[in-house]
Computed example of a mutant assay.
Amino acid sequence: GAGDSWVDLGTYTDKDGNDALFGFFYNVNVKSLVWFVPENFEDAGYEVPDTMEELKALTEEIVADGETPWCIGLGSGAATGWPATDWVEDMMLRTQPADVYDQWTRNEIPFDDPRVVGAIEEFGWFARDDAKVAGGAGAVASTDFRDSPKGLFSSPPQCYLHRQASFVPAFFPDGVEFGTDVDFFYLPAYAGKDLGNPVLGGGTLMAITTPSDATTELMNFFQLPIAHEVMMAQTGFLTPHKGVNPAAYKDDTLRGQGEILVNASTFRFDGSDLMPGAVGAGTFWTGMVDYAGGKDAKAVAGEIQKSWDALK
């Protein structure tokens, strides 16, 4: 799935100035997920949305029913703010072509470009409305991301939707079972923008540092379906390899996430991790906390750009 994306992410300039494939992806994680409790959806008569337009309509429907649609938390100690960067990255991929996302992560367009500001405001549509988020907009920045999904499981539910990566079940209450107590769906793209099915995530690249016949054969092995299927039977391994047997996955959770990867039209690596640390793990984090607290998106983006300029 999204074959060109994987090639691009593993391609770098060699010593002669030519593009060459240096890294081969083996094990990937998915961030473009929305978690929900099927029983809550069934009781309320809600359906899983297929498009971003439908997701926004569902959000408004839940509000109209007098309920709260989203649980969102940005708290993470010294790393507070990072969950919002994932939101913005997902929204960039759903409002702009992938090459614009790439230009953004390399600062080939400024952080306060209207397209980036627009993606920040897309996050704000969900997070800065008291009616749409548990605890009100003022609680978003102060709620720990590890605690934020717990509202899905309270009775009555404090929220119906939670956007977070594939690792978040580690913070669900004990005894929660996937498929019955909780499920997820792909954070959908806009039907009206024709940008395919972009997926945000991370992953591990295998690369040869000391060439030898043995390492070449190992890299050849990593390309075979069996090399993936052996790991798929373990926990925490996902692959976009279209040649694998999805039945090899250990459980339905992994199988569903693997399906999202295989069906992706575009995959992009976590954007903040591609930026200089002082920005991606610094001013971008703190800027999103400021934005969640009510500061203007363009002003926040402008301050992030100034911090990037100071590094040049």
Rank of each mutant, 00 (worst) to 15 (best):
S5Q: 02
V7Q: 11
V7C: 04
D8V: 11
G10H: 05
T13D: 06
K15V: 09
G17A: 09
V28Q: 14
N29E: 11
K31S: 14
S32F: 05
W35R: 02
P38L: 15
N40H: 14
P49M: 04
T51N: 01
E53M: 05
E53T: 08
L58N: 11
L58G: 08
E61T: 15
D65H: 06
E67Q: 12
T68D: 03
G75K: 05
S76E: 13
G77F: 10
A78M: 07
A79M: 12
G81V: 06
W82M: 09
T85V: 13
V88A: 08
V88T: 07
E89M: 03
D90M: 15
M91L: 14
M91F: 15
M92H: 01
R94V: 03
T95G: 02
A98Y: 05
A98P: 00
D99W: 10
Q103R: 12
I109A: 10
D112E: 14
P114R: 11
V117E: 11
G118H: 13
A119I: 01
W125P: 02
A134G: 05
A137E: 06
S142M: 08
T143H: 06
P149F: 08
G151V: 10
L152R: 03
F153K: 04
F153C: 07
P156M: 06
Y160S: 01
Y160I: 03
L161K: 05
R163I: 10
R163D: 09
A165T: 10
V168K: 02
P169Y: 09
F172V: 09
P173H: 12
P173N: 11
V176P: 02
V176W: 03
D183Y: 02
F184Q: 02
F184E: 01
Y190V: 02
Y190N: 09
A191D: 10
A191C: 03
K193G: 04
K193P: 05
P198T: 14
P198K: 02
L200P: 01
M206I: 09
I208Y: 10
I208R: 13
P211V: 08
S212R: 14
S212L: 13
T215G: 00
T216Q: 10
T216R: 11
F222K: 00
L224E: 15
V230Q: 11
V230K: 05
M232A: 15
L238Y: 07
P240E: 07
K242N: 11
G243Y: 12
N245L: 08
K250R: 15
D251T: 12
D252S: 14
D252F: 03
Q257D: 04
I260C: 07
L274K: 12
P276E: 14
G280N: 13
T286C: 02
D290H: 05
D290S: 10
A297N: 11
V300W: 01
G302I: 06
E303C: 00
Q305R: 03
Q305K: 02
